[in-house]
Computed example of a mutant assay.
Amino acid sequence: MTPLVQAEQAVLGAVFLDPGQLDHLSPWLRPDHFSRPMHAAIYAAMLKLRADGHPATTMNAGEPLPLAWVTDTVEKASTHIRGLTASYPHGLVAVCPSPAHAPVYGRMVLEGAIHRSVAQHAIRLHQAARADGIRGGVEETVQHAQILSDVLTDLAHRWGTAPRPLTPPAPSESSAPQSQPVDEEVLADEEFLLGCLSVRPDQLRGVIGWLHPDDFADAGHQHIYRSLGALHHRGEPIDQLTVLWETQRRGALADGTLDAERVLRICDPLAFSGAAEYFGERIVQASLVRTAATAAKQVRALADTESLAPGRLIGYALHVLGPLDDVRRRWRTASEAVPEPLHPTSPPTPPPTARIDAARSRSHPQLTADAPAMAASAATRPAVPDRDHRRSPA
C-alpha cells in the first residue's frame, strides 16, 4: 500500500471520527482529488450529507457521535460505487493516527492529486501533438496546451502558491530531451522557404518578425536562415555567394553542419519561386507541434518525480511551457499574415523539370520587339505557393 492510499484512508477515517473536520477540508479538497473511486465516493457522500445539514455535522464538541453518520455515508456512497461494505469505514477509522491531523492528511491527498493531474494532462498534450503531426494540423495541440496551462494555474491557487515559472535544475545527460524524428515533408518545406527567401529577399520583411531560426527542424537550415537575417539586417545584398560567405563566417561550414554545395543548391535562383509567408506559417506550425511534444514529455517526467513538492512541480512545469507559449503566439501572428493557398480548382503546375527549363529560358529572352513587354508581364505576375517544384533535401 502506497503512502498516498494510506493518506486517503487516514483523512476519511478522521472525518468519520470527527465530522467537524469537513469545515477545514471542504474549501479546498474535492472528491476527484482521491485516487481510488471508492474513497472519492465516500468523501463526496460526506460533503453531500454536510450540505443537507446532517445532525452529525452540526454537533458540538464532546457530544457522542451518532451511528447514523457512518451508515448514512455508506448508504449514499453505495449509490455511486459498488463493493462498499459497512465494515470498510471501521477499517478507515482504525488506520487514522489522529482525527485532529485531518488537514495534514488532506494536503497529502491534494499533493498526490496534483502530480496525477499534471501527468494526465501532459500525456494528453503529447498525444494531441503526435496526432496533429500526423494529420498536419495544430488545433488539438493548441487546445490541450491551453488546458494544461490553465490546470497548472488552478492547482497553484489550490495549493496556496502563485502560478510563477521556476527554472528547474539542469537535467543530466540521461534525462535531457532526445531529438525527435522529423518528417521529410517538413524538411522539404524548410528548404523550399530558404530558396524562396534567397531568390526574393524582400519577402524577409514579411516573415522575420514571427519566424525564428529555432523553428527550423534542421540545424543547417537554422544557420542559413540566420545568415539571411543577418544580411537583411545589415542591408547587404543577398544571393548565393553572400549567403555562403555568411554561413562560413558563422562557422557552419567548419563544424560540418553545412557544406558549400548544399548552401549553393538551396539558394539556387533557378530552383525556387513561391510565397514565403505561406511556407513560413507551415514551418511555425510544425515547430509548435514539435515543441509541444517535447514540453509534454518534460512535464510528464516532472510529474512522475514523487519527491518533487507541488509548488516546485507547478513552477517547473510552467517554465517548461514557456517556449511553447512563445511559439503559440508567433503561430497566431503567422496564421493571420499567411495568404490563402491555391484554390483546388487552379490549373495544375508544370512538373519540376519543365518549371526549371522554363525559368532558364526566361533568363535568356529572345531579342524580339515584344521582349520588354513580356519581361514586364512576367515581373508583375504574382508568386504563389507551389510545392511541386521543390528539390528533395540533401
Rank of each mutant, 00 (worst) to 15 (best):
H39T: 03
D52G: 06
T71D: 09
H39Q: 01
K48R: 15
A51D: 14
D52Y: 00
P66V: 09
A41E: 12
A61N: 03
A68K: 13
P64C: 00
T57R: 06
A45S: 11
H54W: 03
T73S: 13
P66R: 07
A61M: 11
T73G: 07
A41S: 15
A61S: 13
I42E: 05
L67E: 15
A61L: 12
A41F: 09
N60D: 12
T58A: 15
D72W: 06
A56F: 05
V70I: 15
D72C: 11
N60V: 00
A61E: 14
G53T: 04
V74F: 07
A40S: 15
A44N: 13
H54A: 02
P55Y: 04
D72P: 01
L65S: 07
L67M: 11
A51H: 08
V70P: 02
R50D: 04
P66G: 11
R50V: 01
I42Y: 04
M59Q: 14
H54P: 00
V70N: 04
H54L: 01
L49W: 02
I42Q: 02
Y43R: 02
A40D: 05
P66I: 09
T57W: 09
P55V: 08
D52T: 08
M59V: 03
P64T: 10
D52R: 13
L65Y: 06
N60R: 13
T71P: 00
N60K: 12
K48W: 00
E63G: 01
R50S: 05
R50N: 04
L49Q: 03
D72S: 11
P66S: 11
G62H: 12
A61Y: 10
Y43G: 02
D52K: 12
M59C: 00
V74C: 07
H39P: 04
G53F: 00
A56Y: 03
A45Q: 03
A40Q: 12
A44F: 06
D52A: 14
H39W: 00
T71E: 13
H39M: 07
A41R: 14
A68I: 11
E63W: 05
H39N: 15
N60M: 08
A56M: 03
H39D: 07
P64R: 10
G53Q: 05
D52S: 11
D72Q: 10
I42R: 03
V74A: 08
A44W: 05
A51N: 10
P55R: 07
T73I: 13
M46E: 06
T71N: 10
I42F: 05
T73A: 09
P66C: 10
A45V: 01
A40G: 15
K48N: 03
V74Q: 07
H54K: 03
W69Y: 12
Y43T: 03
M46Y: 02
T73W: 08
P66L: 06
E63N: 07
G62E: 10
A61I: 10
A56H: 04
E63P: 04
M59F: 00
A45D: 04
G53S: 05
